[in-house]
């Protein structure tokens, strides 16, 4: 790792796709940078390009224009991805889900089991109880924990998390948020979280960027000390940060999404 301080630099990123005959500009000259170990949340209304951004950052999609650089890394960094849905393979047990990448690289069985136990404990699940279970035998919150552990399986240097708590009840949501905070701070990973939940974005992040029509509408620094407690959510300063994000999103909501002519591509 090079002591640059910047883990990831996004330069003038553009991406468009076709939807019902129209060309939708998902990202439009998007630029920002993320520091090493920083927790960055990306918020924005539906279709603002949040998930597309994660797909490009993880190299699952190629941008139309612009580039993603990793100045702090001499070789491309290991990237973990916690998907919004369908993150686990339902025909594999928790243990075999957690060690899929090790299986591919040909790691020995004992090594895989030991790593699976470690990952399971990291996300607060009992290995004895849960490793042999299939995803459909777990609760929604437990599945999200397994997915978080899976994202950590390859010891990522950058972790991308897409809507980590969108489908769980609020108690589980808080538990997951605490877990993400603990895991991120203990591992020192650079974390990028896409979320609709503004409270979650403020509580988890060092910085929140509001996406609007494919570019950064606002970037808000959140400088609450860590580790953060649940009481923080009730403070005035917390509410001020939330209000600023809501305002940025409300202003962007009044502008129509960018639609390009059909022959754009």
């Amino acid at each position: 790792m090079v002591a640059d301080g910047i883990a990831l630099k996004v330069k003038a990123l553009s991406y468009s796709y076709r939807s019902r005959g129209n060309v939708v500009q998902a990202l439009c000259g998007l630029s920002f940078a993320v520091r090493i170990g920083e927790v960055l949340s990306v918020v924005g209304r539906s279709g603002a390009g949040k998930s597309t951004l994660l797909h490009i950052l993880s190299r699952l999609l190629d941008p139309d224009e612009g580039q993603v650089e990793f100045p702090a890394f001499e070789t491309p960094p290991r990237i973990g991805y916690m998907f919004q849905s369908n993150g686990t393979f339902p025909w594999r047990t928790v243990e075999r889900n957690l060690t899929y990448s090790m299986e591919i690289s040909g790691a020995a069985r004992e090594q895989r089991i030991s790593r699976a136990r470690q990952l399971c404990s990291m996300v607060g699940l009992d290995p004895v109880q849960h490793l042999d279970k299939y995803p459909n035998e777990l609760s929604g919150g437990q599945v999200r924990r397994v997915e978080l552990a899976m994202a950590f399986a390859q010891l990522p240097q950058i972790l991308l998390v897409d809507e980590p708590t969108s489908s769980v009840d609020w108690i589980t949501r808080r538990q997951l948020q605490r877990m993400i905070q603990d895991v991120a701070s203990s591992s020192g990973v650079t974390l990028i979280v896409v979320t609709h939940d503004i409270e979650e974005a403020v509580w988890l992040s060092d910085r929140v960027i509001a996406l609007d029509n494919g570019f950064v509408a606002d970037s808000i620094e959140i400088d609450f000390p860590r580790p953060r407690s649940d009481e923080l959510r009730t403070t005035e300063a917390f509410r001020v940060s939330e209000d600023r994000i809501i305002r940025a999103l409300s202003e962007s909501a009044s502008r129509p999404p960018v639609r390009l002519p059909q022959d754009f591509k």
């Binding site: 797909h55 993880s58 699952l60 990237i79 991805y81 998907f83 919004q84 849905s85 369908n86 993150g87 393979f89 025909w91 594999r92 899929y100 990448s101 299986e103 591919i104 690289s105 899976m150 399986a153 390859q154």
Partner: peptide, 29 residues
């Protein structure tokens, strides 16, 4: 087969053949 299965497998280093064998085949059984 959900796209995320392919994405996850390729992010974890699976080749095309490996994806067919370890993702597509069990998913369509």
């Amino acid at each position: 087969v959900p796209l995320t299965y392919f994405w996850r497998a390729s992010l974890e280093g699976a080749t095309r053949v490996r994806i067919l064998e370890s993702v597509v085949l069990p998913a369509i059984i």
